[in-house]
């Protein structure tokens, strides 16, 4: 396609604009990482710098000694919760989708309509009741209430159902039945591997959103040994860090580091996955 002169100028403008937006995405994180390596005195001199300095080790030892923010406890608890929620969410959502696609049962349509209906329930309307209920059964200060609810994830069931409808032929199920495989085995050994691509996409999003969850863990957990990363981060607002500028930025950097690693290694799949999610409606 031949371009007119104005179109060439427009192209240049658009490209420059996109570069600006890209800088806007990176800059806050860049300043954060740089400041994590600068001393409080340097930051007091000028808090904006793009060049790393040499106080990383000092900031690190201050952070570990201050006592409130502990990145490793945060990593451990967030990892337990996120991995647990992802594994349970993927397995049981696939199982529910399998039940919806393969079997003809009386309430199948009603159950699917129900799943669509509850997809839109805002999580926070259940918070007070959820908290009181967990308190009653002494489940507060326990990571399980952050993991188990993912067994019922309507949005993921919806997605898995769409995927199965498009990719599963009932012949596979029927021929496995002729070989006398039990229904449960058919699901575990044939269907689950078949759903790998869908599971991979959804797993990333469940993992990340569980990792990032702040409100529910904040409400349930009061034992510092159980704090997940987002709660750890909120501790950086504590007065003991008031003038420890470098330490705050180091803590922030450590809190987002795993997400950066996950994002930049899997960005291709994540971007494709977001696009898939949008088509579902």
């Amino acid at each position: 396609m031949r371009l007119t002169r104005t179109q060439v100028i427009q192209r240049g403008f658009i490209f420059a604009f996109c570069i600006l937006l890209a800088i806007l995405s990176i800059l806050p994180f860049w300043v954060m990482i740089v400041n994590a390596t600068r001393s409080s005195a340097q930051i007091q001199g000028s808090a904006f710098s793009l060049i790393p300095s040499s106080s990383f080790a000092y900031n690190y030892s201050r952070m570990m000694r201050a006592g409130a923010f502990n990145p490793f406890i945060g990593y451990l608890n967030s990892a337990i919760v996120s991995v647990g929620a992802t594994v349970l969410g993927m397995y049981f959502s696939s199982l529910t989708a399998f039940a919806l696609v393969v079997y003809q049962w009386r309430f199948r349509k009603a159950f699917f309509a129900f799943i669509v209906a509850i997809m839109m329930i805002p999580a926070q309307v259940t918070t007070i009741g959820f908290f009181q209920f967990m308190l009653q059964i002494k489940f507060n200060n326990n990571l399980l209430p952050l993991i188990l609810p993912s067994i019922a994830s309507p949005t993921i069931v919806f997605f898995m159902r769409q995927y199965l409808l498009g990719s599963l032929s009932l012949d596979i199920v029927n021929s496995a039945r002729i070989d006398n495989a039990s229904e449960f085995r058919i699901f575990n050994q044939i269907i689950l591997p078949l759903m790998k691509p869908a599971i991979a996409t959804q797993a990333i999003f469940v993992f990340v959103s569980t990792w990032n969850n702040f409100l529910i863990p904040r409400v349930l957990l009061s034992d510092m040994k159980l704090f997940t990363m987002p709660i750890m981060v909120s501790l950086l607002r504590n007065d003991i860090y008031r003038v420890e500028y470098g330490t705050i930025f180091l803590g922030l950097t450590m809190s987002v580091l795993p997400l950066f690693v996950v994002y930049f290694t899997l960005s291709k799949y994540i971007i494709a996955g977001v696009a898939l999610g949008g088509v579902k409606e």
Binding site: F29, P230, V233, L252
Partner: peptide
């Protein structure tokens, strides 16, 4: 990225 981290 964690909203809590971004806010902080």
């Amino acid at each position: 990225i964690t909203a809590a981290s971004i806010a902080m």
